[in-house]
Design a protein around this nucleic acid. Structure first.
Length: 592
DNA sequence: ATAGTAATAT
DNA sequence: GATATTACTA
């Protein structure tokens, strides 16, 4: 399929983070080996450690294609790190990163001269390890660059993207070129290794449900008033994310929240108006909106469940809003101080009122929203692009030799479609408009709504949803997907969430999610929190993901939605399903 | 010098 | 529309 990549290169998605990159770490100090292994794994890399240089060399010789990059200490008893470097350079074209405790220029120089692609000073930080993959891709990049431009530019490009790696101790670009000598030769080899991943380019972060969940979680933990990209980034524990990525997402998130608020206000004050408007579009269940609005007004109301309702509302509103507010930065809601907010932690008041207010919505919505937000895109069926995204999201497997990368991409979409989507797909024929019209379909979703809270059910988005759906392809899926079982589960959850929301705004969101997801709530929660988990799970997920996905997906679909949700948390692949479940929400989330 | 945000570009 | 990047402020 073709994706609409801007890159002009052939390679489809360079976006994916190269999870699974096989790294060989060589250091005579077992402590460092352990530390590095841990850190690298956290970065989603596949790590092999080795205490002896000779042993490392043997390993490399045995498994010619077994590694993508080598990180070696300079000082080692059995063999000088430089020696190893030399051998590796001669016998294989693998990029080698040298490291040592001291940054003595002469040594660094030596490393560079011997072909090291980078030189790290020992207290090595995650930041520096995160982007070592760039060395692996550099060749490709070079190639690409040739196509595109001159050399220098590309490199710079890379550096930028990748980034941190070199930040601290990065060697001059020249160094890279050094190592480059072998690279040429190696290129052929590398090509194979790195092939699929395709060219490098920059990775465009796809905010999957999983990521967004982490994001929200982090936001909640930090406290709305205190949130900042950096803090969020740290809490999220996703190694390959940059502060900029988070900042960007945060912007979007705030925008979204702001919108929500605005809408709220509007609804509140002009509920009638909206209704009328809405009614105009969809006469049927708009009254719900009013009710919803009212509820929403209460911070609690906004609770996750409502979310759906909200979304609907929002969407409706959006339609209107768009024109005027879309960009308005103003939206920041200053309305309520957030009484509810305090619930969480932190002191709500200090920070800007606007934020606070937003926050409210944040937490609550987030949970729900998260799913919704990303999901739509993910669905492959929807668009080719979606596919691309999908793959990326899944993550970055770029493992050259491993087959899984391909797996997910290929089968995922199809399978999913078959199972879940199909209906939707067939629906292609049926236009969105139809969807709306079809209350029956709408009913599906509404089902949850009803279950949750009777009052809410009015909201049942049927009417509103229709719009939403129409708007986004994902919605279709959701509709189709909506299964009775799931719904029931959801409903129960929802109720809980509502209560909770009342108590503590933010948390409620998280909880609600959990509930929604069903069982594993805790586990996933943890995942979110602990970066380490992430790291572990991510990589793992990569390999198995595809497989698991298959297994899970089908069964779960039939059985229970909630399950996958959890799963999804653990394994990205599942998302699709999840998303399916929470269609409505999705749309609403980030509609912006 | 860094972090956050708004604005703008892709 | 989503995300990246830039520019500016604190």
């Amino acid at each position: 399929m073709m994706i609409t990549e801007n890159t002009g290169f052939s390679s489809p998605r360079s976006d994916a983070f190269p999870a699974g990159l096989r790294v060989l770490v060589v250091d005579d100090d077992p402590t460092w080996l352990k530390i590095l292994e841990k850190m690298l794994k956290k970065c989603s890399y596949e790590v092999t450690t080795c205490g002896l240089a000779r042993e490392a060399l043997n390993l490399l010789r045995e498994r010619k294609d077994g590694f993508d990059i080598v990180i070696s200490d300079v000082n080692m008893p059995d063999m000088d790190g430089f020696k190893l470097l030399e051998h590796v350079g001669l016998e294989m074209d693998l990029p080698v990163i040298m490291m040592s405790v001291d940054g003595e220029t002469s040594r660094v120089m030596k490393g560079v001269q011997h072909g090291a692609c980078d030189y790290l000073l020992k207290p090595i930080r995650m930041k520096e390890l995160r982007n070592i993959w760039q060395h692996v891709f550099r060749k490709r990049i070079h190639e690409v660059r040739d196509i595109e431009f001159h050399e220098g530019i590309d490199e710079i490009h890379l550096m930028k993207n990748g980034s941190d790696l070199s930040e601290d101790r990065r060697l001059p670009s020249g160094i890279d070129s050094f190592s480059g000598k072998k690279r040429k030769e190696a290129e052929k080899h590398d090509d194979r290794e790195c092939n699929d991943p395709s060219s490098v380019k920059k990775a465009r972060v796809v905010w999957t449900v999983d990521l967004h969940q982490k994001f929200v979680k982090a936001v909640n933990q930090i406290g709305f008033d205190k949130v900042g990209p950096k803090k969020i980034l740290d809490l999220m524990g996703v190694p390959w994310l940059t502060r900029e990525n988070v900042a960007s997402h945060l912007q979007k998130y705030r925008l979204y929240l702001g919108r929500l608020q605005k809408e709220k206000e509007l609804t509140t004050s002009f509920g009638g108006m909206k209704d009328s408007d809405i009614s105009a579009k969809e006469p049927n269940g708009n009254h719900c909106l009013h009710d919803l609005v009212n509820k929403q007004q209460c911070d609690l109301a906004s609770g996750s469940y409502n979310i759906q309702g909200n979304k609907n509302m929002i969407q409706n509103v959006d339609l209107k809003m768009h024109e005027a507010d879309l960009k308005c930065t103003v939206p920041k809601p200053m309305e309520e101080p957030k009484k509810a907010i305090d619930g969480e932690s932190s002191d709500p008041q200090k920070s800007s009122s606007k934020k606070m207010s937003l926050n409210h919505s944040f937490g609550q919505f987030d949970s729900d929203l998260e799913f919704a937000a990303v999901i739509p895109k993910q669905y492959p069926w929807n668009e080719e692009t979606s596919q691309a995204q999908f793959s990326r999201e899944r993550r970055p497997h770029f493992q050259p030799k491993r087959g899984f990368n391909t797996l997910p991409l290929t089968y995922l979409p199809e399978n999913i479609q078959l199972d879940c989507v199909q209906p939707s797909s067939s629906p292609n024929s049926r236009p969105s408009s139809i969807d709306r019209d079809k209350l029956a379909e709408a009913e599906m979703k509404p089902a949850y709504v009803k279950n949750r809270s009777q009052g809410m059910e009015q909201l049942s988005p049927a009417g509103c949803d229709g719009d939403l759906f129409s708007a986004q392809p994902g919605s279709k899926l959701t509709n189709n997907q909506a299964f009775k079982p799931t719904q029931s589960a959801v409903c129960s959850m929802n109720n809980h969430s509502l209560d909770e929301n009342l108590e503590g705004g933010m948390e409620s969101a998280g909880r609600s999610l959990n509930f929604a997801s069903g069982t594993d709530y805790t586990s996933w929660d943890e995942n979110l929190h602990s970066g380490s988990l992430q790291g572990d799970f991510q990589p793992v997920s990569t390999g198995p993901q595809g497989i698991e996905f298959l297994n899970y997906s089908e069964p779960e679909l039939t059985t229970e939605v909630p399950t996958f949700l959890y799963d999804s948390l653990k394994f990205d692949f599942e998302y699709p399903f999840d998303s399916m479940e929470y269609p409505v929400i999705d749309q609403g989330l980030f509609i912006v």
